[in-house]
Structures are given as structure tokens and as C-alpha cells.
């Protein structure tokens, strides 16, 4: 996809006039460029997070598409929005890293990590914590949070409803958080 900026301007002009198909083509054409910028700037984040950020940028372009002046060049407008949202998204994620275990396991699953030893240690720590839960709760956490299996499959395997699974996962996560904070005497 090697559209020039002129094509993009034409597509967005048609899109803002109500042409949904032109709009879809515009977003499809812009996406790889946005993805490239996000990948180049965000090496410390995993591919899953890259795609989340790409989608945030696309949403921002979507919400602010009326701020482009049709008689002005598209590129400066487009890059200004991409730049603003990428910086914003990275800043928002910088804070997430310091949150407790609920978020920690998600990052662990998504991020291959720049330091494999740190990742391995963290994984080992998580395993040790999971060992202190009862086996059923541990399996819920492994299946839903770490392996990201579909809740329906997990429910069928463990013979639980999805509602019960959600409650189970929530309780297990809370238990894990207290275990991680309080060391070994987490089980009252």
C-alpha cells in the first residue's frame, strides 16, 4: 500500500462528505504508517500493546476528523494527531508497569521483555504464588489470565458457569495480590 498523501486527502475528503467506503480505505491506508511509527518508537512494549496503541491513534483520527481543513495539506494534520496520541499512549502505559499483580500478569503474558532473565524470574515468582492458591483457583488464573483461553472453553473444562469463573478469577487475583504484598502469611 503506497498511497501518496494526495490520495489520502481525496479519501478523507470523500469520507467527511459521507462516503463510508472511502473512509474505510483511508483508515486502511493510514494504518500501516501508524503501525510503523508505533513500532519504531515503542520498542519496550509488546506487539499486543503496539496494536492497542495503533487502534487508539485510529480512534483519535476518527474522533477528530472534522478538524482537518479540506483545502489544507493532509500530512501535517495527520502527523500532528499521530504524534500527540502516540506520546499520550506511551505516557499512559509508563504508569501501568508500576501497578500490582493483576496488571503485572497481563504484561507478563503480552510482553516478551527486553531482559529474558527478569521475565523468567517474574514467571517463576508468579508460579510460586499460584502454588499457594487452591488448585482449582490456580487453574482458573492460568487458563484465563496467563494463557488467555476463551472463558466458555475453560468453563466447560472445569464444569463452571462463566459468571462463576469471573467471580473465581476475581477472588484468586485478590488473593494473589495479598500474597504478593504480605509474603507467605496471606492465608489468614
Amino acid at each position: 500500500m503506497t498511497h501518496t498523501s494526495d490520495d489520502w486527502a481525496g479519501l478523507l475528503r470523500a469520507a467527511n462528505a459521507g462516503d463510508g467506503r472511502a473512509y474505510a480505505r483511508f483508515l486502511c491506508a493510514v494504518t500501516p504508517v501508524v503501525r510503523g511509527i508505533v513500532r519504531a518508537r515503542g520498542r519496550s512494549f509488546g506487539p499486543d500493546q503496539h496494536e492497542d496503541i495503533v487502534q487508539e491513534v485510529l480512534l483519535a483520527l476518527h474522533r477528530k476528523r472534522h478538524t482537518w481543513r479540506e483545502d489544507h495539506p493532509l500530512r501535517p494534520w495527520l502527523y500532528a494527531i499521530v504524534r500527540y496520541k502516540v506520546v499520550d499512549a506511551f505516557r499512559a502505559r509508563g504508569a501501568v508497569v508500576h501497578l500490582p499483580i493483576e496488571d503485572f500478569t497481563e504484561i507478563l503474558a503480552a510482553d516478551p521483555g527486553p531482559d529474558p532473565f527478569a521475565a523468567r524470574d517474574a514467571a517463576r515468582q508468579t508460579e510460586a504464588l499460584l502454588g499457594q492458591l487452591d488448585p482449582r483457583a490456580a487453574e482458573i488464573v492460568r487458563a484465563l489470565a496467563l494463557r488467555e483461553e476463551a472463558p466458555a472453553d475453560v468453563g466447560a473444562r472445569l464444569n463452571m458457569t462463566e459468571g462463576a469463573l469471573r467471580v473465581g478469577l476475581h477472588r484468586a487475583m485478590k488473593k494473589l495480590a495479598t500474597l504478593a504484598k504480605g509474603g507467605t502469611d496471606g492465608h489468614r
Partner: peptide, 20 residues
């Protein structure tokens, strides 16, 4: 959500009035 799905969804929305 898949990015292509997102784009397809966004493309169905009516355009907002231009900014004056």
C-alpha cells in the same frame, strides 16, 4: 478487537459536521 474490525466499525459512522 482486531484492527480491521475496528476500521469497518468506524467506517459505518456518519461524519461529524466540519469545524468552523
Amino acid at each position: 478487537m482486531d484492527t480491521d474490525d475496528l476500521i469497518a466499525r468506524l467506517a459505518t459512522e456518519a461524519p461529524p459536521p466540519p469545524l468552523h
